[in-house]
């Protein structure tokens, strides 16, 4: 039993632990959205994808834990979460590229569809407990239980951290990355190069939704580790906004996700050491941070740097 108190050290520790625990969903969704938006389409439906991913990961982990054991079942869940995300992404990718169809409107429809489908299929999984993903216990050197628990790092988080520079490299140095950027910045030029705009966008949206689905799996199989209908509490939409905040740069998506993940734990961490006034304000910390950084970095003289040229323009 954890009996020794940490006192004030609990605040920074809580925020670090919260960052390690809570930023993975933001990271996956924002990286997925980054890829999607680089190709020139917006996918607002990632909130629905996130919920669908959380539900399918939890459901699959629960249903298969007797067959494949409690180690592999959650990984199977992660895979299925990604695939279910791809399914939703395929719908969005096809639908949003039809003539006179607005991708924002389709995205909102996909939020409703994805969350509705997840709620409908997820009913039987609210009550049971599914096997959770294993964690790396990097805190074993410490005798303080709080540190041990804070340094339980999920492999999914590490994968997410690894994907960010990989995606940066993909955009900058590979032929396919160039295709995605070309389609996103100047579809006409891409067309002249002989690239199929439809295929590139379709595949980008599918891949982005795959990542968002895995983000959902982080929620239901790692932290907080349950499936309920309120599990996402708007994190999918926040992650979409985060991409703009990160200027469509995967590395900055990583920092932004860490910031948002950590900011989530500010309110509870402060209250637990006795700073109990203004907790509504502390709970709003992520949004206040966003506003502050937006105000600092914006400029009336130029438009958003890094925005893909064709983003949000109908063809």
């Amino acid at each position: 039993m954890a009996t020794e108190a940490l006192g004030w050290w609990g605040v920074p520790l809580g925020i670090i632990a919260g960052t390690l625990r809570g930023s993975a969903p933001f990271l996956f969704v924002s990286l997925g959205e980054c890829l999607t938006e680089k190709s020139g389409k917006i996918n607002l439906g990632l909130e629905g994808t996130l919920l669908m991913g959380a539900m399918s990961a939890y459901g699959v982990s629960f249903l298969t834990q007797d067959m494949v054991g409690s180690f592999w079942a959650p990984w199977l869940g992660v895979l299925v979460a990604g695939l279910s995300g791809m399914g939703l992404g395929a719908i969005h990718g096809w639908l949003s590229q039809q003539r006179r169809v607005n991708d924002v409107a389709v995205g909102i429809a996909m939020i409703i569809f994805g969350s509705g489908l997840a709620f409908f299929l997820g009913k039987p999984f609210i009550q049971p407990q599914a096997s959770q993903l294993f964690t790396f216990n990097w805190g074993a050197w410490s005798s303080i239980p709080a540190v041990q628990s804070a340094l339980k790092v999920s492999p999914l988080f590490l994968i997410g951290v690894a994907i960010a520079p990989l995606m940066q490299w993909f955009f900058r140095s590979t032929r396919w990355g160039l295709y995605v950027r070309a389609v996103g910045d100047s579809p006409d030029a891409a067309l002249a190069m002989g690239i199929s705009i439809f295929k590139v966008r379709f595949l980008s949206i599918m891949a982005g939704s795959f990542l968002a689905g895995i983000g959902g799996a982080c929620l239901s199989l790692y932290f907080p580790g349950v499936w309920t209908e309120r599990i996402s509490s708007g994190q999918g939409l926040m992650a979409v906004a985060l991409v703009i905040f990160a200027r469509w740069n995967p590395i900055q998506c990583l920092w932004a996700s860490l910031l948002f993940g950590g900011a989530q734990s500010i309110g509870p961490a402060f209250q637990s050491v006795g700073i109990d006034s203004y907790y509504y304000l502390f709970n709003a910390a992520p949004y206040i941070l966003t506003l502050v950084i937006m105000v600092i970095t914006c400029s009336p003289k130029r438009t958003l740097i890094g925005a893909p040229g064709a983003l949000g323009k109908s063809d």
């Binding site: 954890a2 940490l6 609990g10 520790l13 809580g14 632990a17 919260g18 625990r21 809570g22 239980p145 709080a146 628990s149 804070a150 932290f223 907080p224 580790g225 349950v226 309920t228 309120r230 599990i231 509490s233 994190q235 989530q264 734990s265 309110g267 509870p268 961490a269 209250q271 637990s272 709970n283």
Partner: peptide, 13 residues
């Protein structure tokens, strides 16, 4: 859910 889990964790800390 996320805040509730965070709250429980920081209490345990």
């Amino acid at each position: 859910p996320v805040k509730e889990a965070e709250a429980t964790n920081s209490m345990a800390d």
